[in-house]
Deep mutational scan, measured.
Amino acid sequence: MEQATVKWFNAEKGFGFIERENGDDVFVHFSAIQGDGFKSLDEGQAVTFDVEEGQRGPQAANVQKA
């Protein structure tokens, strides 16, 4: 698992990007966020996640709020 920071997340559209420590951004979809209830992330929030290869490149999976 990697630890990184949420760059931005649009709760209405259900997706955003996580900024990795190496500077690369990773796409995150609300369905990858672990937990119950409304799944959203806040800008600047610390998260841990795995990286999977998606249809359009790397994307976050198993996202957990740190």
Rank of each mutant, 00 (worst) to 15 (best):
G23F: 06
F38P: 10
I33L: 07
Q45S: 08
V28L: 08
A60C: 00
E19G: 11
G44Y: 05
D25K: 10
A46L: 15
E12G: 09
F30L: 06
G35T: 09
G37C: 10
E52D: 07
T5Y: 14
H29P: 00
G57P: 04
A66E: 10
F49K: 03
T5V: 13
E53N: 12
Q3R: 15
R20W: 08
R20A: 05
Q55D: 11
F38R: 08
E12F: 11
R20T: 08
A11G: 08
K39N: 06
S40Y: 14
F38Q: 07
I33Y: 01
K39W: 07
F38A: 07
K7C: 10
Q34N: 11
K39E: 06
R20G: 06
T48D: 05
K39D: 04
N22Q: 10
G14Y: 01
K13A: 09
D25Y: 12
Q64G: 07
E53R: 08
G54L: 06
D25T: 12
A61V: 14
D25L: 15
F15M: 05
E43Q: 15
I18E: 00
A4S: 09
A61T: 13
G57R: 05
F9I: 03
A32K: 07
V63Y: 00
A46S: 12
V51F: 09
Q64N: 11
F49Y: 08
E53P: 10
I33P: 03
F17S: 01
V6P: 04
E2K: 10
G35F: 08
A60L: 01
E52P: 00
K7T: 01
K39H: 06
V47I: 08
E21Y: 11
F49R: 03
F15D: 01
D42T: 15
A4Y: 05
E21F: 12
E2V: 12
G54M: 07
L41S: 01
G37R: 03
A66N: 11
E52H: 11
D42K: 15
F30V: 09
V6A: 00
I33H: 00
K39Y: 06
A60E: 00
F9E: 05
Q59M: 09
A46M: 13
Q3L: 14
G37K: 05
L41K: 00
S31Y: 04
A4F: 05
A4W: 04
G16E: 01
E52A: 10
G54T: 13
V26I: 13
M1N: 12
A66S: 12
F27N: 02
V28H: 02
K65I: 13
V26K: 01
E43Y: 13
Q45M: 12
G57L: 04
V26H: 00
K7F: 02
A60R: 00
A61I: 13
F17G: 01
G57H: 05
E53S: 10
V63Q: 01
Q55W: 13
F38G: 06
G16R: 00
D50C: 13
D36T: 13
K7G: 03
A61R: 13
E21G: 10
F9N: 04
G57D: 01
D36C: 15
V63H: 02
Q45T: 09
G57N: 02
Q59E: 08
H29V: 02
V26L: 15
N62T: 05
Q55N: 11
A61Y: 08
K65S: 09
V6D: 04
N62V: 04
D42I: 15
W8N: 04
G14V: 02
F49V: 03
Q45I: 09
K7R: 10
K7Y: 00
A46D: 08
F27L: 03
E43F: 12
V63A: 02
E52L: 13
D50F: 15
Q45W: 10
F27P: 00
N62A: 05
T5A: 06
S40P: 01
G37Y: 07
K7V: 05
A32W: 02
I18H: 00
A11W: 10
K13G: 04
K65E: 06
R56D: 07
E21S: 13
T48Y: 14
V26T: 05
I33K: 00
A60M: 02
G23K: 09
N10K: 03
E52K: 10
A60V: 03
G23R: 07
D36A: 11
V28C: 07
E19R: 15
F15G: 01
R56F: 14
T48G: 04
D42W: 14
E19I: 15
E52N: 08
V51K: 05
V6R: 00
D50T: 15
K7P: 03
M1Q: 14
F27D: 03
D42M: 15
L41M: 04
M1L: 12
M1I: 12
V28G: 01
E43D: 10
V26W: 05
F30C: 10
H29F: 08
G44F: 05
